[in-house]
């Protein structure tokens, strides 16, 4: 990992799979990047439809305080979780939200705002919205470079239910592609569309 300490939050509503996104990232950081990672899910009494988030604290060394203090990365798939969990964001954090949501983010921050409809992309490219969380971890890898592309791919495959490995691999690659496009963009606010999610032959 290129930094000593990193904090990421994936937010959404119950049923979208964001907690799995946190699990995959934490697993990848520990298994393939030699870091320590703590993953903490938060959910409400509503199993589906309640505001949900997962925090991943990553460090090169032992993590004493297990909760987040300053988020380097924030991603939300839903207005409800965006409203509740948009907290502890660093000034130079990367924020990824659905363009259909009202970000209500203070001016001058964050340094990079990525607007991308991950659910729509999952539906169109993968045929199922539930791949949006795997696309999200791919996007995380592509834009932050905190975890190597090959390592996030391995982490996704290791955590994929049997028989879904190839679909999940495609989903994470779509995410990586989106993340790289966002990283390359010089704009402070980057709008990604389904065109940016198309995999070229070289991705396969």
């Amino acid at each position: 990992m290129k930094v000593d300490h990193y904090e990421a939050r994936f937010a959404g509503v119950g049923g979208q799979g964001v907690i799995l996104a946190g699990k995959i990232l934490a697993y990848g950081m520990v298994s393939f990047e030699g870091c320590q990672a703590i993953e903490t899910p938060t959910y409400t009494a509503q199993v589906r439809g309640g505001a949900t988030k997962v925090d991943v604290v990553i460090d090169k060394n032992h993590i004493e305080y297990p909760r987040t203090e300053n988020l380097d990365f924030f991603l939300s798939l839903h207005q409800k979780s965006l409203s509740i969990y948009y907290k502890e964001i660093k000034d130079d954090a990367i924020v990824v939200v659905d363009p259909n949501l009202n970000p209500n983010i203070p001016k001058n921050m964050p340094q990079k705002l990525v607007l991308v409809d991950l659910i729509e992309i999952a539906k169109k490219e993968m045929g199922k919205t539930l791949y949006s969380a795997v696309i999200a971890v791919g996007l995380f890898a592509g834009i932050t470079k905190i975890i190597k592309e090959s390592n996030i791919q391995k982490a996704v495959i290791d955590n994929a239910p049997k028989g879904t490995e190839m679909d999940n691999l495609k989903a994470v690659k779509i995410g990586i592609e989106l993340g790289k496009k966002a990283l390359e963009s010089k704009e402070k606010i980057v709008i990604l569309t389904i065109e940016d999610a198309k995999l070229t032959d070289s991705n396969d």
């Binding site: 934490a26 520990v30 990672a37 703590i38 993953e39 903490t40 938060t42 993590i63 297990p66």
Partner: peptide
């Protein structure tokens, strides 16, 4: 809740 819910290796 903190230590019951967090996961680590």
């Amino acid at each position: 809740e903190v230590i019951a819910h967090l996961s680590a290796a």
